[in-house]
Design a protein around this nucleic acid. Structure first.
Lengths: 221, 221
DNA sequence: CCCATAACGGAGTGCTTTGCTCCGTATCGG
DNA sequence: CCGATACGGAGCAAAGCACTCCGTTATGGG
């Protein structure tokens, strides 16, 4: 049997760059347009033809699922970096600041319930849940985190702080010169929240949310 | 000249109720669908015919402008209630909790830049800016608010905390049984933020955002 | 310097959604 | 019972949608 070895892809470099641009653009458009984000808008913002997008992701759903998968990877990586910190408070602080600052994140809440979650993705989610719980427990043991804060409170903070409404708005309106100030404003908000997490804190209202509140949004069907 | 007095409107009560329902529905749909919110969806959610909506608001823009106007009224009212508090810290706390809890608010950021701001609306905005600045100054004088927090930091917090992504998501997916838990989670987040605002606090990063960042998003054209 | 090949861009397609108009119907005070 | 007013929603032209198809372009081993 003669070698049917394929030649190397002629335009591999361009293809790789296009893929990165597509994912970046998809996150931006999703953050701005929410559930109504269109494939055409994503391709246009990436500076890539629609045809090229569809060659890589046969379906809009495939693209979005990949995005969710990458986001799960992002949080696992952030939690690993945070867990490696020697100080319990620094670990929590790294979790929030690193996790929220990178644009590898972006608000995917808009497509919750529309993408099928694979078992591998579920496993990544379970993993990050366990890692964050360990981080919170460590901070409680060290007495640096207010005692009434639970793991799900931390996820609630992440959900609330992940969208950057001002930044999206400015980007959409083309007011790029205001972007640094808006990003700075968001960093200050996160810093305020971090201080709010420090022990002792005044008692929190209600009960911590059950994890089901977060998970059920992502169930399809 | 004979009296051309009009007869009283035969279905006035129904009309009033419909108007309230329309505004409530518009806020919900805007929060869920963002800038792509459709008139048909608003009418449907209000349980009102499209024709009735268009009789009251000749244009989609008219409806949205009214919504923005009411939101400005809402914040002025909240600031008046907060300013009436005897304790400087309680005043700030009322501002955030009352301002963010009511569903008279809702995230209108999605339509920033698409509605024409009338001089009257601009005046209301200026008024609330002055009132909040007074509140912040009072808290600084009393030494209860961390000294590096400015008025615009407070607006940034409001912008960040106004959207309720989890609540919208659950409502959209029909998971009504989870709504109380999600609302509780949000109250806890706000309580954490409030504690983060207390003096002394650790130094905040960057500089406070200029007010222009907030205003320019609303300029049309 | 070829030229086979893999990746490219975007016009086109059938279908849905949109903002808005129009008009026959329902309700109520006098 | 009747005139006035508000009602609901079918219908319309235009725009937007996910996705297909195909002629074009860039690359790198021989």
């Amino acid at each position: 049997m003669p070698s049917t070895r394929r030649r190397p892809a002629p335009r591999q470099a361009e293809a790789d760059r296009n893929d990165r641009e597509l994912l970046r653009a998809a996150r931006e458009v999703l953050a701005e347009d929410g559930a109504h984000a269109s494939v055409a808008a994503i391709a246009a913002r990436a500076g890539v033809g629609i045809g090229s997008l569809y060659r890589r992701y046969p379906t809009k759903d495939d693209l979005f699922r990949h995005l969710v998968d990458l986001s799960l990877d992002h949080w696992v990586a952030v939690l690993e970096a945070a867990g490696a910190e020697a100080d319990a408070w620094t670990a929590l602080s790294v979790f929030l600041t690193q996790g929220l600052e990178s644009d590898s994140s972006g608000s995917l809440a808009a497509i919750a319930g529309t993408v099928e979650i694979t078992p591998a993705m579920r496993a990544k989610d379970d993993r990050s849940e366990a890692m964050l719980t360990a981080l919170v427990q460590r901070a409680h043991d060290a007495g640096v985190l207010r005692p009434d804060v639970s793991t799900s409170d931390m996820w609630a903070l992440v959900e609330q702080l992940t969208p950057a409404p001002m930044i999206e708005q400015l980007r959409k309106r083309g007011l790029a010169d205001q972007l640094p100030a808006a990003a700075a404003a968001r960093r200050r908000v996160i810093a305020i929240v971090l201080d709010g997490l420090r022990a002792p804190g005044s008692p929190l209202p209600d009960a911590p949310p059950p994890k089901a509140v977060f998970d059920r949004r992502w169930e399809t069907g």
